[in-house]
Nucleic acid binder design. Structure first.
Length: 151
DNA sequence: GCCAACGTTGGC
DNA sequence: GCCAACGTTGGC
């Protein structure tokens, strides 16, 4: 079982929004590395750290899980969608996603600032790499556990 | 709102 | 295949 971290801008889709809808198709990922994690490496039931980005206090705010096998992101074929990709063909979809299911919301935000303060204990962590912009990234079991212990 | 970092595009 | 231009991400 692999562990993951997925970023979302709370203005767009927050942990509270996920708690309300329970399950959300993770549409709109348009980065090949992030897509490949969803398409090739995720399995139903894998734990996910839910991360709020681009906000006052960026950080991990809760736990979700992979809730479906990968399937083509429908927004790529929708001309009205911001995520429309005219170059993608229905018989050969370029963008794939998984459903993300709510597990629980943290009592408090484990902030990026706190994570950075422990950067050494985390070792190599994609989230803390300089200039990191990946919105879907792998987390080791030890890193996952450490973040849970910081709640 | 600024801007550094990074991915993608397209001309050559 | 190189690389400049451009667009986006995301912390601050």
């Amino acid at each position: 079982m692999k562990h993951w971290l997925m970023k979302s801008e709370p203005d767009e889709f927050s942990i509270d929004a996920l708690e309300r809808v329970r399950t959300e198709p993770w549409s709109g990922v348009r980065n090949y590395q992030a897509r490949n994690f969803m398409l090739k490496d995720m399995k139903v039931g894998d734990p996910i750290l839910f991360y709020h980005s681009n906000c006052a206090v960026p950080g991990v705010v809760g736990i979700a899980e992979v809730a479906s096998a990968p399937y083509p992101d429908p927004t790529q074929f929708d001309p009205k969608s911001d995520y429309h990709d005219p170059a993608s063909k229905p018989d050969e979809p370029r963008w794939w996603l998984v459903d993300v299911g709510f597990q629980r919301k943290f009592k408090r935000t484990v902030s990026l600032e706190e994570l950075k303060a422990q950067a050494e204990a985390f070792g190599d962590f994609a989230l803390l790499r300089r200039g990191n912009r990946l919105s879907v990234l792998p987390v080791t079991p030890a890193q996952f556990k450490r973040i849970l212990s910081m709640e």
